[in-house]
Amino acid sequence: MSKSDIYAHFLPEEKSFVDRAWEWVERAAEQHELRRTDFLDPRQAHILYALANRHPDAAIRLEGGYDGAERVRALIAPDYRPLEDEDAGIAVLDIASDDRRQSELDHGDYLGALLGLGIKREKIGDIHVREDGCHVLIVSEIGDFLRAHLRQVHRIETTASVLPLERLQAVPVKLEESAISVASMRLDGIASDVLRVSRAKIMDPIRAGRCRVNFKTVEDPSAQLREGDIVSFKGFGRFRVIAAEGVSKSGRIRLRIGKYV
C-alpha cells in the first residue's frame, strides 16, 4: 500500500501519527515482532486499528484493562500469532489516603499529580475516581516507580500500591443529558450553549488551542460537529453530541447532549 493511499483516509494533521502507526504495523508483520504500544486515545486507536486491518500479514488487539475503556494499549503481531492470551502489560495503581479531603479530589487532581512526577500521558490509561480513593490504569513497567514516589495529590498525603487488573474498581462514566437547539453545527455555537458561556468568551479557548474534538486540537470556532463527537475544553469540562433529533419549524437543529460529570 502506498503512502498516498494511506494518507487519503485520514486528516492532514494526523500524518505524523499515521507514519508512526504504519511503521509499527510493518515491523510487527514483516519482522515477526510483537509490539505493545503505550495507551492510545480513541482516535489514535481507530487509526492504528484501521491500518493494521489494511495490512494482509498483521493482527491487532486493543486492550484497556476493562470492557468499555476509553484509552487502550494495542498489541500488534504477525497474523499467525494469536493475541488473545498475550499480556497487555496493564496494572492498577491504587491511590489511597487517610485524609477525609480525598473525597474532594477529581480526575484532574490525580492526573496532575502523576504528570508532575514526569510521567508521560501515554503511560496512563483511564482514571477511576471514587470518594474513598482512585484506581488508575497504567503501563505495568512504571508501577514500582509510582509506588515509591507518589506521596501527594493536590496537597493531600497519599499512598500508592500496584494491584492486578482483576482488582480494578471501575467507575461507570456518567453523562448528564440535556436538549438544546442551535442554528448550526458550529463548534462555538454548540459549546457556548452546553457550557453556558457567551459565544464571544468561548472563542478565546478555542483559538488558544484549549479545545479538542475527538481528542484532536481544534482551533477553528466554525468547525462543524457531528453526532458522536466528544468535545473537551481545558478548564470547562467535556461533552458528547449524542444525537441530532431533527429540525424545528424555525429551522433550528435539535440536539441531545451528554455532559460528563
Rank of each mutant, 00 (worst) to 15 (best):
V261Y: 00
A183C: 05
G228T: 08
T159R: 02
L225S: 01
R130V: 06
A179C: 06
L111T: 02
P172L: 02
R35F: 09
Q31N: 14
A52G: 13
A113H: 02
Y66F: 15
V197A: 10
L195C: 01
A148Q: 14
R121Y: 06
G125H: 06
R207N: 12
A88V: 09
K234C: 02
A208S: 14
G89P: 07
R207T: 14
L48Q: 00
G237S: 07
L115D: 01
E227T: 15
S103P: 04
F236L: 15
T159E: 03
E104D: 11
E70V: 02
G125I: 08
G112I: 11
I95T: 01
K3R: 13
L62T: 04
E227Y: 07
S103N: 12
D106A: 06
E84F: 03
H154D: 13
T217M: 09
L51D: 01
D109L: 03
D98K: 13
D87I: 04
P164N: 05
I202A: 10
E84I: 04
I119N: 08
E23M: 00
L168Q: 10
G64Q: 10
S192N: 12
A223M: 12
L195F: 15
L115F: 05
A28R: 01
R167E: 15
V171K: 15
H128I: 07
E122M: 03
G189C: 09
L165G: 07
L175R: 13
V25I: 12
V182Y: 12
K259C: 00
D79C: 10
G237L: 11
R54G: 15
V197Y: 03
H9L: 05
T217A: 12
K15V: 06
I60A: 10
H128T: 04
E157R: 15
A28E: 06
V231Y: 00
L75F: 05
R238L: 06
H55L: 02
D220P: 00
